[in-house]
Computed example of a mutant assay.
Amino acid sequence: MSTCERCGAAFHCAMADAPAGQKPTGAPGETPCWCTFLPPAIPVPGTEAVGCWCPACLRAHIATLETPPDVA
């Protein structure tokens, strides 16, 4: 199980929680993580990356990105 870097909830991440001795490669036929089905919203592994977020936190963050600003 992984721990959400935002709220601390436990959740399953297919990328981080791969079976022992097996790293996900992105090869055809591998099960992708649930997050790959959502719009890209935060940096992933790299210098500005954030840790994994649970489904609720990632969906809430995406909702704030998709909300148009108020027009005065």
Rank of each mutant, 00 (worst) to 15 (best):
V44T: 14
P68A: 10
C4G: 03
S2Y: 01
E48T: 03
H12T: 10
T3Q: 05
C13E: 00
A41D: 01
P24C: 09
A14K: 00
V44I: 15
A49H: 13
G51S: 12
P45T: 09
I42N: 09
V71L: 14
C33V: 02
L65Y: 14
P69I: 05
V71W: 15
L65T: 06
A10E: 15
R6L: 10
P19C: 00
R59S: 11
P45Y: 08
P24F: 12
C13K: 02
G8S: 09
M15F: 05
D17P: 09
T25K: 05
V44Q: 13
G21Q: 04
P19M: 06
R59K: 14
A63V: 05
P32Y: 11
T31R: 13
T67F: 07
E66D: 15
P55C: 11
T25N: 02
P39A: 05
K23L: 13
P45Q: 15
C54A: 01
P39G: 10
M15Q: 09
E5Y: 10
T47K: 09
A63R: 04
G29K: 00
A27K: 13
P32T: 14
R6D: 07
A41G: 08
A27V: 06
G21F: 06
F11I: 04
V44H: 14
L58N: 02
A63T: 08
T47M: 09
G29Q: 02
P69Q: 12
I62H: 03
P24A: 09
A18V: 13
A20S: 14
P40Y: 12
P19S: 01
G8C: 05
P32D: 08
A14V: 04
V50T: 12
T67W: 05
L58M: 14
A20P: 13
T47L: 10
H61M: 08
G21A: 00
K23H: 12
T47V: 10
F37G: 04
E66T: 15
P45C: 08
E66N: 15
A60P: 07
P45R: 10
A56C: 14
P39E: 04
E66M: 15
A9Y: 01
S2N: 10
Q22G: 13
A10L: 04
I42A: 11
A27S: 13
S2A: 12
C33Q: 06
C13M: 00
C54G: 06
C52W: 02
M15S: 02
A27L: 06
G21D: 02
G46E: 07
P39W: 08
G46P: 01
W53A: 00
C4I: 10
D70S: 12
C13V: 03
K23S: 14
C35P: 01
E48G: 04
T47W: 09
A9L: 06
T36L: 15
A16T: 07
M1L: 14
